[in-house]
Each structure stands twice: as C-alpha cells, then as structure tokens.
C-alpha cells in the first residue's frame, strides 16, 4: 500500500483586471491546473495585506501566489508595484518564521496570459509537492490584532 501523495493547497490572490481575467482566459481555453489551487479575487493586488498571506499559511495553505498586472498595466496605476514591494518585505518575515520564499510567489499575469497563469500555478504546485507540507504553521494571531 502506498501513502496518498501529498497534494499542496494553494491560495492565489488575483486582481480583478489582469490576472483574474487571465484565469478566466485559462478557463475558456480549458488549460488544466491542479485542483487545490484556489483563487481569491481582489480589485487590485495593492489591496493584498501581507496579513492575508500569513492567514493563508496559518489556515493550512502550503503555498501562496500573488498574480499582478504587468508593470505599467495596473488599472489603478501602480497598485501592482505596491504589491511587489510588500511581497519583498513579506519574504523576509516568512523566512524568519521558517517559511521558505519558494512558497510565496509573486508574478505578473495579463488578461491574455491564460497559459502563463496555468504554468505559474502548475510550477508552484510541482515545487511544493517536492518540498512537502509546510513544516511550521504561523500562529493565527500573527499580523493584525
């Protein structure tokens, strides 16, 4: 009898205008990706409070992906760049918590890039499958009180 394979759980934060539309595009083109990838829609990746990412890890996610508009394409001018800055800072904190930076990915996906979306999440899942479940879970109180 073999152990059931570890299937990582992923939370993806997608902005309404580019990457969420890119996910719709992946859907319309029927480009498959792993079933435990869940997308949360925000209007802009600038809305993503680092706390949400910590919350996702605390609640059982093995990986998080933030997909923003390409630089220059943000519907709100520069929210994607704010998200990028916050992601860079967050990686430091995650490191201190023992969460490797490979588990929290940032990438750009346009409304046309359905294939890229599927490839990015597919790659993330593959890598985390190899890395195994998150070794530690951050306390749920981390972040905002």
């Amino acid at each position: 009898m073999t152990e059931p394979a570890f299937e990582p759980r992923i939370i993806g934060f997608l902005c309404n205008w580019c990457s969420y539309a890119g996910a719709d595009k992946a859907g319309a083109a029927q480009v498959p990706y792993p079933p435990h990838v869940h997308f949360v829609r925000v209007m802009c990746t600038g809305r993503i409070d680092p706390h949400f990412v910590l919350q996702a890890f605390a609640q059982g996610a093995d990986g998080v992906v933030i997909l923003a508009c390409h630089p220059g394409d943000c519907h709100y001018k520069e929210g994607n760049l704010r998200a990028l800055q916050r992601h860079r800072l967050l990686l430091r904190l995650l490191g201190q918590l023992g969460i490797g930076e490979e588990r929290c990915r940032f990438d750009y996906v346009s409304a046309a890039e359905g294939d890229k979306l599927a490839a990015v999440v597919g790659d993330l899942v593959k890598m985390i499958r190899a890395a195994g479940p998150l070794p530690v879970r951050p306390e749920q109180e981390i972040g905002r009180d």
Binding site: R9, I11, H38, V40, V42, M43, R47, D49, H51, F52, Q55, A56, Q59, G60, A61, R144
Partner: peptide, 18 residues
C-alpha cells in the same frame, strides 16, 4: 475597503482551506 473588507477576505481564505 468596502466590499473587500479584511473580515470578508480572511473568511474566504479560511473557508477555502477548511
């Protein structure tokens, strides 16, 4: 953030992972 409150988003995350 109206309609995208911390509470709504974190509830969604939690439920997706439960």
């Amino acid at each position: 953030g109206n309609h995208f409150t911390d509470a709504a988003i974190t509830a969604e995350i939690e439920a997706l992972l439960s």
